[in-house]
Design a binder for these strands. Structure first.
Lengths: 222, 222
DNA sequence: ATCACTTAATGAACGGCGTTCACAATAATT
DNA sequence: AATTATTGTGAACGCCGTTCATTAAGTGAT
């Protein structure tokens, strides 16, 4: 039943954007009365957080195939490329996950899932960065895998989120967003490498996304 | 009168966060009835956009002192540092300006102000990047000032916005946000330079902000 | 001074939102 | 069959943005 509610919410979200996800509409979709939802969720907030957890799993599914790459460095690069594509193909989800301050989730089970490379995509990414550090790929002064992971993440996040928030503003004469993303990605990684110049030409520009959804290169809902 | 309305809105925004900026509360503050605001603004949206324009001017005021630096490269670095501090000190304003998709502003006057280095901070930044390009500071393959400006902006934006959106989530074991910002800033600039190694130690960690406001290292309103 | 006329401001309402709560319907247990 | 949990409901509350007919106040011409 929780699942039926979340399904309806997901559909609304995918087809009409975040602002359309209202308790009343969700209730309409499953033909219940609005108050009923409160029997299954504390809050609207809790419902949204449940949605976000699904999206986080989606990120994991998008990211994981990159583990198949041969070397740590290739895995690192591939991660970044997959992340970029994920963010650009699902701007609404991306916005909900990473551009909206959500109340910190204090469910201890949720906390455990984080930082675990098996279930958490940040944890997985971090572990690959650590591989690179251990393999001696980075400059001597770069030893903090955490700092590296968070910095690369932030950089890619910057390109994606700025594109989502301001990409529609044509006063800026934007360069193609993927050009910016790849440029920055290479800049970061090459800047960290001890032996630079192992430059792969570009990211494979598009990779399939795991979950199914009405193909939305979604309109960003203002 | 428009100004009185905007003042009230600004106060509400600064003291209680974006979500507290409601037409009814603004009307209360200036002791008018809610409907009156519609005599001076088309929309709530137009009112918010007027607020954003003020903030944009504030960014300009924060950024401009960096023009006093001696060399193009120093100006470039100083810009980035000022921008970082601005974003970290005024998260609510930052969120409103750069993390919320706003309807594109089609006022032609507004459009003209953009891209003009005199009034638009992006334009000013771009002109400094162009200086660096013209001075031959960058690698031979880096000639597109626009791409450079947008990429550096995106990188710094990533650190700031990720901090605002997810910085409260302590499951990530965040490194200090300024460490991340400076790390990435140096990484980007040094990666672009033709002759690397002109590394200034760090940013002067804090610089005064131009406009006055109840000193808010504001709580990020969820 | 009176009238017409523009402008400023209002009160009441509309529809939508999240949320609450007393109550009805249904299912489970004894 | 009677009692007790569990599920679902309708109506309301207070908030929101927005609209509109109506009043109040100022202005210029006659």
């Amino acid at each position: 039943m929780r699942e039926r509610i979340l399904d309806a919410a997901r559909n609304l979200f995918a087809s009409e954007g975040y602002e359309a996800v209202t308790l009343r509409k969700v209730a309409d979709c499953i033909e219940y009365c609005p108050a009923t939802i409160y029997k299954y969720f504390e809050d609207k907030d809790e419902m949204v957080r449940a949605l976000v957890e699904d999206d986080i799993a989606m990120v994991m599914a998008t990211i994981r195939p990159s583990m198949a790459e041969q070397t740590p460095l290739e895995r690192l690069r591939s991660f970044g490329c997959a992340y970029i594509e994920m963010g650009l193909e699902r701007p609404n989800h991306y916005r909900l996950m990473f551009m909206t301050p959500l109340l910190p989730v204090d469910d201890p089970l949720f906390r455990k899932k984080r930082a675990d490379p098996q279930t958490d995509s940040y944890g997985l990414f971090l572990s690959v960065v650590q591989e690179c550090v251990d393999a001696g790929l980075f400059r001597a002064d770069i030893t903090d895998a955490c700092l590296v992971a968070q910095t690369i993440w932030a950089g890619l996040h910057g390109v994606i989120s700025l594109h989502i928030a301001c990409g529609g503003n044509d006063t800026y004469d934007w360069r193609p967003v993927r050009d910016r993303a790849i440029f920055l990605h290479d800049l970061m990684i090459n800047g960290m490498l001890r032996v630079p110049g192992i430059v792969l030409p570009t990211c494979p520009s598009s990779r399939p996304v795991a979950t199914t959804e009405p193909s939305l290169t979604e309109a960003v809902t203002p």
